[in-house]
Amino acid sequence: MSKESKKKKWSQEVTEKSDALDLEEGIFKSDDPAKIAHSLKRSAEASDRRKSTPFRSAMSMLTFYINRAGAGLSRRQRHVLEKAKVELRKDFGREPR
C-alpha cells in the first residue's frame, strides 16, 4: 500500500468513525449548506464524547473534511462546504467572518 493510499484511508476512517461525532451518512455530499450545518450542529450537541464545545467540534469536522478531500472536491462542492461554515456560525449565533 502506498503512502498516498494510507493517507486517504486514514482520513476516510476519521470521517466515518469519528470518536467525537456521529455524522449523518453522506452529509458532506449534500448540495445544501444549511442542511450540512444543521446536521453537524445536531451531531455535535448530541455527542457526549467530544472534548471541545459543540461549535468547535462541528467546525473542526467540517474543516477537516474540506482539507482532507483536497483536490478531490469539485469547485462546486467546495463552495457548498465553505457556505456551510457560514451557516454553522449562524446556527451557533456566531458572527460570520
Rank of each mutant, 00 (worst) to 15 (best):
P54W: 06
K8H: 09
L62R: 03
R78K: 08
V14A: 13
R50V: 06
S74E: 13
Y65E: 09
L73D: 12
S43V: 15
D31V: 10
K85T: 01
R68L: 13
K85A: 02
L40Y: 01
K17C: 03
P96M: 05
G70P: 14
M1I: 13
R68C: 12
S43D: 11
M59F: 10
K6R: 13
E82I: 05
A69L: 15
S47L: 05
V86S: 00
I66R: 00
E24S: 05
Q77I: 06
M61G: 00
E24L: 06
S18L: 13
V14P: 08
R94T: 06
R94I: 04
S30T: 10
E4W: 09
A84N: 07
T15C: 04
K83A: 05
R49Q: 03
S57C: 00
G70A: 13
E25S: 07
R76H: 14
I27E: 12
R94E: 08
S39H: 10
K83W: 02
M59C: 11
A44N: 01
T63K: 12
F92D: 01
D32T: 12
S11Q: 15
E95S: 06
E45S: 00
L62C: 07
W10M: 10
I27T: 08
E82C: 04
A71I: 11
L62A: 06
K3Q: 08
V80I: 14
P33Q: 07
F28G: 05
D48I: 07
F64S: 06
N67S: 15
E95F: 02
D32Y: 11
S74I: 12
K8Y: 07
Y65W: 14
Q12Y: 00
A44C: 03
R89L: 01
N67Q: 14
D32W: 11
L40A: 06
K85P: 01
S39A: 14
R42K: 08
D91I: 00
A37D: 04
K3T: 11
